[in-house]
Design a protein around this nucleic acid. Structure first.
Lengths: 239, 239
DNA sequence: AAGTTTGCTGGGAGATTCCTGAGAACGTGA
DNA sequence: TCACGTTCTCAGGAATCTCCCAGCAAACTT
């Protein structure tokens, strides 16, 4: 549902000891178009990385046996240069995190939102693979969102969004012309431990509309009883 | 009677502890062209999923032994990647049903309508199987209904429908050129606990006609004493 | 032709869903 | 410390939807 690409986008290795989080990541990453293997500890991770040659590793820094840094060091010692997206606790100290991002690597903090993880992984792959870096801008009609610069424009005019507004709009832009239920939006845009009601989605849709549907024709439409959909008004489709 | 495809569309496992609901689901899903196995508790469900390898699991989250989430986790632990359509109570609080839609999975709330369940199952299968994603549009004459965008058009012109109108039209579109009785429509389109009279069907047929048969030639025809049928007027069939 | 049955549709009450402003709680940086 | 932006909740009101009813129209029966 995240993506329309049918061919596997990349091969990932997910290393995470909490089964629930591991399966959450594996399931949604598979659905996003990735090929996914999983490991619950550092030793298994190293073995799988050795034989599987994944394109990228999603690595929790807190593991039961060896920690993520040690896994990284051993990987590098063996000449493996795969980029890594680290998963850390939110309260991890700043300098530790800073040390993580030296290469093309990146990190996300627990609890994360699925959209955030997927976006980071794609960004890292984009950077390390080099090539045409045109995957960084999402467009729909006269709306564009750049994932690198975090810049959003409607018809050329720059629009300032809060972090949550940005993530919500990115999710909508990844699923144009598809109705997304409020629960679906909650599951993808908000952190996995969010326990609030779906009324929060209504609020943020309202904020977004105020900012991006202010002048031009509305792109965000309500499907009462179903959800929201990003769509170009019919009278404009033939223009 | 739901579908014209003669070969089994997919193999389903229905897990539901209330016998009435279980049989209602099993019977109508079989009639819709699916091959169906049933289980009344989580343990049986896991055993059947193990040996039967169903393409999709319809899973009530309230079970006598282990709950649906636990069943899901154990399924995933064993490497089973079947998509799941969850069945939940309508008043389930947000935290209970969180995370249900992440892997392409979906959910329906009790009491549901059969059309809703079947539509969700087909949508999930469509998405997870990937392939040509053109199965999301139902067409008849110059009428089309898209299940992803929830958009309905007659001759290109967009038509706005309420949720019930949408479900009714979808049911008609799934059974073109077949007379559907009011009782049949009631049983498929309305929730299974609806206790109203079939006069409500007349009302909604009237609403639908006003919206989709407004300009073009009528597609919805009354078979007095029998029911309604979606049909192209004879003088147009050769055009 | 009259009577009977069946279907159509306008009106409206009540329920549901959605929108949005107001404000509390929180963290961040000046 | 204070100001500010952000997240999230809540509640009133608006918009829409569901459902029922009743009167009328159409079709069928005798």
């Amino acid at each position: 549902m995240e993506t329309q690409t049918p061919a596997p986008e990349a091969r990932l290795l997910v290393v995470e000891d909490e089964p629930n989080i591991r399966e959450l990541l594996a399931t949604s990453l598979r659905f996003a178009g990735f090929e996914v293997e999983t490991a619950g500890d550092g030793a298994t991770a190293l073995a799988l990385a050795e034989e599987g040659e994944p394109d990228l590793v999603v690595l929790d820094v807190m593991l039961p046996d060896v920690d993520g840094f040690e896994v990284t060091r051993r990987l590098r010692d063996r000449g493996r240069q795969q980029p890594i997206v680290f998963v850390t606790a939110r309260d991890a100290t700043g300098d530790k995190i800073a040390g993580l991002t030296v290469g093309g690597d990146d990190y996300v903090t627990k609890p994360f939102s699925l959209e955030e993880v997927i976006a980071r992984i794609r960004a890292v792959l984009r950077r390390t693979r080099g090539g045409a870096d045109e995957g960084s801008t999402l467009r729909f009609h006269d709306l564009e969102l750049n994932e690198d610069s975090h810049e959003v424009r409607r018809g050329g005019r720059v629009i300032d969004l809060s972090p949550t507004e940005f993530k919500l709009l990115r999710y909508l832009l990844l699923n144009p012309n598809r109705v997304l239920s409020k629960l679906q939006i909650l599951d993808h845009v908000w952190d996995y431990d969010f326990r609030g009601e779906s009324g929060i989605v209504e609020s943020y849709i309202s904020y977004l509309r105020r900012k991006i549907d202010a002048d031009g024709p509305s792109l965000i439409h309500t499907k009462r009883g179903v959800g929201y959909v990003l769509r170009v008004p019919p009278e404009l489709t033939t223009v």
